[in-house]
Structures are given as structure tokens and as C-alpha cells.
Design a protein around this nucleic acid. Sequence first.
DNA 1: CCAAAGCAAGAGCAGTGCTCTCTTTTTGGT
DNA 2: ACCAAAAAGAGAGCACTGCTCTTGCTTTGG
Lengths: 260, 260
Amino acid sequence: MSTARGARARARTEITAAIKDEARRQLAAEGAAKLSLRAVARELGMVSSALYRYFPSRDDLLTALIIDAYDSLGEAAESAHAKAADAEPVRQWTAVCEAVRAWALAHPHEYALIYGSPVPGYSAPDSTVPAASRVGLLLIGIVRDALEGRGIARPPLPARLRPEAERMAADLAPDMPPEVVAALVAAWAQLYGLVGFEVFGQFHRVVEDRAVFFSHAVTQLAHSVGLLNHAGTSGAPQESRRPPRGRGRGTASGGTRAGS
Amino acid sequence: MSTARGARARARTEITAAIKDEARRQLAAEGAAKLSLRAVARELGMVSSALYRYFPSRDDLLTALIIDAYDSLGEAAESAHAKAADAEPVRQWTAVCEAVRAWALAHPHEYALIYGSPVPGYSAPDSTVPAASRVGLLLIGIVRDALEGRGIARPPLPARLRPEAERMAADLAPDMPPEVVAALVAAWAQLYGLVGFEVFGQFHRVVEDRAVFFSHAVTQLAHSVGLLNHAGTSGAPQESRRPPRGRGRGTASGGTRAGS
DNA sequence: CCAAAGCAAGAGCAGTGCTCTCTTTTTGGT
DNA sequence: ACCAAAAAGAGAGCACTGCTCTTGCTTTGG
């Protein structure tokens, strides 16, 4: 339905896509600040003013790229989750987190575009909201499923946080306990702290084996929202695992006898 | 010693300072991307080329501002810590975290400069390292003190993280247990995830009472590095507080009868 | 079939970072 | 005290940017 409605209309969508592709190329190569309308037009063999027929301003082009980036990230996260759909909640959680990290490392400039400092004067229009929510919704969904399967413990909820937690829960997931939603939002932000520090080079000469460090950190994050390690999601029989006794949330179980 | 060594030399430092001040003004007003050498020069009544006698390029000016920003943030954090030096470790921790948040909210563009996406092509020179480390060192110090005072529990340390944790500990704090250092680094990154999300507007329409939300989140962060709530730092008697019994970590203490 | 709408091209404006040359001022050694 | 050398300011200019406006050409639809 959206195709074959005149040569001109088809050309328009094609050119629009070509512009975005070339812009994405420049974005990936040099970063958002060096993305130049003129350079894009030049590369496409058109004159710069012609480009304004497709995007009314440079910021509009950027906005389009932002939405695409959110969608690309969301898709990466969702497909990673799909592959881990049968695993226990903690593994689903870490799978999604690791997909986010992998995507960010593969597309640092696009990551910077959406989770780094907002571009110059610009503030994200509402049109970006749905695309931006995908990862968050995914994480909420994982915890919700675990909740139904009882594979979750309630995080602490101090009294003064209760009103705000209830507000957030009402907005984001009315079916879930406020303390879980609050912990979820915090974990969400913290996840992007971990990813951002790695992508933006803050871990340079601090963390070397960043993959295992990240993996551990997001596992702890999963625990912080209440996800347990050996939770049986109602009817998920596969994968032999030792019973949830013993090494539960080993706090002082720490050092393999090699104490400092 | 550094003063009164010729009128010219004094004028140079004065003008350098004036340039940085004006640049900081523009940075705060419009953001790093709109910081213009020409505009700074114009405002100072000089011609743009004259400015290059003081800063060889725009990036060098930015680097100077970055170092100043790190120092300003570090100072804010350190003075907040000084005021809480006698409190228990968790309070010291949250005091520093809240100072970081307050500084970031008061100087969003400078925060973006140092913890947002790195500017265009530029990568932070080594000269920024000492200034950049101040907050991290502060957090390490708090945990170290708690460690000496026994006010800390050991975070978990899975086997595969051990080598990296030992590496980090050797680099950052050879006197501290690896699992604590690893948790510290993670908490450090997560702190900036929380701050960044608030400063960059990601919490818009998600979290309303951001102060109490943040306060709770960083308290949990303190717990994640092992800091305990009612730890008596050797001799710190002051501040009557109700005994740690009762409403400890209320897990199922849930809904105030107003269930969903 | 032909007006209307969509599109490309070019010139032009105001702004940017940065370089180069020229003149003036200050400095420091003899 | 003098005078070459170093430092600083001023101005012109280059190559680039985002964006606008006018001028033609082409496709579209009543």
C-alpha cells in the first residue's frame, strides 16, 4: 500500500532513505557535531539547498537519526531477549543488558546521540518517545514475568520513597509492586551509567576485562530489582540446575579462602 | 612568587582568566557546541585572531574548561564530604553523591562536557586525569575508612571476576579487598548513570521526586559496595538513632492496606 | 491539457575556526 | 641607555557551515 504510488513519491522515499544512510555514515565516522548537511548533499551528488526539501533543518535530520538509533537499539535488545526467552529471569536480564552494551560499543556515536549529552539547543521531540521506550519496556516485561513466576524478592522501600514509587508504578506498570518499579527505574539508569562509562572511555586504564566486569555488574543489578538466581519461571523445566539451597545470596561467602 | 613578574605576564594571566570566564559563561548559557571563539573575543573587545595567542585552538580552550569543571565538581564533592566527615560511612557516601548531583544540576552543560558524549573529534588529554579522579578517590577513601572501622561487608565476587578485580585493586587501592574495589568501580559508573539520566532529561515524566529517588538509589549503591547502615566507625557516638531492629529491610511489609 | 505542486540548482548571507601578514608594545641583554 | 628579539594586537582572507530566496524544470492530478 505504501509502494507504487507514483514515480515521484517512490523517488522521494528513496532519496530520503539515501540521505539518512549517508548521514548515518558520517555520524558513525565523525560524530554528530561533524555531521554536515552540505557534506551529505555533496556525497549524494546534489546541491545543499535541495536537501531542505527532505529535511527542513539539520536538527530534523538528527531527530530522524535519533529515532532510528533508538529503534536499532531496541531491536537488538528485543532479539537478544527472544533468544533467551526460555532462560531464567536473571539470564534474560543480563542478555538484554549485554545486547545494549554490544550495540553501544558497535555504534558509539549513535549511542552518544541518544544517551550522551543532548545536542546543542535541541530537546527531544515527543516523536522519539515510543522508540526510546523499547528497552525499558523489555526490562519491565522480564521482571513482570518473573513476578508472575514468583521468581523475585521485594527490594527494600523506605517510607519516604513510597509515594514516588507508587506514582512511578501507576505510570509505568500498575500491575507491579511499587518497590520493584522503583528499583527497576534505578537499575535502568545505572545500566546506562555502566554502558556510558565504557563507551565514552571513562574505564580507560581502570577496567580492562570489561566484558566480565559488565556481566557481573548487571547481574548485581538484576538482584537489585529482586530477580533471583535460581528462580523457576512457573513451567520452565529445561536446563538442569542445582536446587536453590546452599549458595543463595552469599554475602560473606566471598573469597575462596584467599582472604586479604 | 607567581605574581608581580612584569606587567605583561600579569596581563597575560588576567586575560587568560577573562577568556575562560567568558567562555564558561557561553558554555553555561548555550552549551559546548555553541561556544564560539569569535563570540568570546567579540565580548571581550578583542579581535578573534588575538585570542589564539592564549589558546592555540578551540579544543584547547575546551580542555581548559574541562579541567576547571572537574576541579569544580571535585571541590564541591570534597567540601560536602568534609561537612559529613563525622557521620557514619553511608552518610558520607550519600553526602558525596548528592553533592555530585547538585553540582551537575547546577552546571548541566559543564557536566555534559565531562561526562556526556566526548566533544567532536577530541579525546581527553592526560592533563585532565588528576582533576578527573578527585570524586573517585573520595569515594574510595570513604570505603577505606569504613573498612578500617569494620563498617563494611564484603560484596560477592564470582570466580571469573576475580582476576580483573585483583587487577583493579592493585591499580586503584592495593590495600583494599578486590571484591570491594570491583563493587566500587561499578557503583562509581552507576552513580553517573543516575546523575546523567536526571541531567539529560531521561527521567522526564518518569521520576518526579528526583531528590528522594536519587537519595534512595545511592543509599542502595552504598550497600552494594558493602557499606552498612548502622556501622559504628570506631569512635563515632553522636546522633541518636533508633535501634536497627523493627522495620529493617521490610520485604513483604508492602502496601499500606491500599493494595492495587 | 494545462495549471499547480514538487523539486533541483545557484547565488547569497551571516556565521564559524584558523592562518598569515603587518604594526605596535614590552622585554631583557649588552 | 639602547636596540634587537619576543610577545601581542589588528586586519584580511580562506574554506567551511546552516539556511534562505529566486529561478527554472518536471511530474502530477483535476
